[in-house]
Nucleic acid binder design. Sequence first.
DNA 1: TAGATTGTTAATCGATTAACAATC
DNA 2: TAGATTGTTAATCGATTAACAATC
Lengths: 237, 237
Amino acid sequence: MALQPRNISDAGLRRLAAYHKVLQEMLLAGTPTVSATGIARVLALEPSQVRKDIEATGIAGKPKVGYPLAVLIRWIEDFLGWNNTKQAVLAGAGSLGSALLGYQKFRQLGMDIVAVFDNDPLKVGRTIHGKQVFFPDKLPSFALGAHIHLGVIATPASAAQATADLMVAGGIRALWNFAPAHLRVPDFVVVRNEDLYDSLASLTYKLEKRMAAERKAAAEVCAPVESAVVLLDACTW
Amino acid sequence: MALQPRNISDAGLRRLAAYHKVLQEMLLAGTPTVSATGIARVLALEPSQVRKDIEATGIAGKPKVGYPLAVLIRWIEDFLGWNNTKQAVLAGAGSLGSALLGYQKFRQLGMDIVAVFDNDPLKVGRTIHGKQVFFPDKLPSFALGAHIHLGVIATPASAAQATADLMVAGGIRALWNFAPAHLRVPDFVVVRNEDLYDSLASLTYKLEKRMAAERKAAAEVCAPVESAVVLLDACTW
DNA sequence: TAGATTGTTAATCGATTAACAATC
DNA sequence: TAGATTGTTAATCGATTAACAATC
């Protein structure tokens, strides 16, 4: 009977989305109920962590049984705001912007991109994935008029700040920023940065460290070897 | 004289990439040196956090002066592995995969996508952004032969696990996964998930919470009002 | 009932922030 | 010199993990 809304970390919110994916697969498989332990096993997480994340949604489970699958899915969706679809504007109709427009599933996850804005006169007036493209200077009045509070930035880095300013002027309260730029916005605006260059940083670092460790391990195996032939396969580097 | 390599969190690695962007702008502006305090000011971070992140790279600064700008940029690049370009394979030549192929800057950040793999017979044999497209069954032998250890997955979720398996079989040690799926891979493979659905979760949650708080605040202002006309503008909802 | 699982509190762990002596 | 900044250690904070009574 957990009914108190609890704090949840950003990482916890992302995990809830991951649980949602797993649960939908289970639903297709016909499973009636699921336990936190079961989810933890699939995703290789700690059961107590899964239990705590689920607890944040406020759903009540039954000891020994777990949670009714369909109900849990619904609670997670409600908690994350996915059943309350929010209209959104997109800035930047380049390759990434177009790709994002093609993500049909966003609508099921609470986001519906209704208009696109781009500086390129060749793109303005045309439609991409069924959405019309406008000049950016139309953005503020459009967003204000349609009461839109969610904006996606897929412009080059050089245009990102100006775009963010337009969006804030248009009443946007949450920004999903794909441009590799640091945005300065008022405190009442939520920003989620999806900077691929930042992400790549941790991956290249870890790969390099991993490869270095492997080379070192191989060296330790190979170095003190008397008859090198024996371990030749292990030391092809 | 910080020369000890220190542990750094995943968040710290991402921040280093952000510093790198800021520093390059400063370099263009002609600044000769920079202090951790200065970087912190620009990005609205704690000076001690920036100092600690920079310390992880092992560079030595001078009290009162800071760090020589060009040297610091180079140390960050070396630390993140960006000056040691790693070849990569890409799976999935859809809109997202094509967009990723168009990111010229990846090469400066240590990653060079050299081949693309896709199931679609219409795409195989053609080139996208100058890269040839092959059938996925060619992936393992190609990656092994070219000693490639980095793989990017931009397939639909349904193909992600099979693709990951092929990549692991091809000697890939680091996976950048854009498919909304949980990958099961051996321990010696690093996975970085770039799941947009997970990211959207935290944004929709925060936007909804923010809007709810605003509505509540407005209600508290409007509710106890005797002459409603006075505050009409503030309560248009 | 016995045993697995929930709900919740406590312990641990790690990252961030603060503090401060050394120093240019 | 005086003062800002580094390098580093200590304190704080928050998230994860462990523990366990309640319970179906």
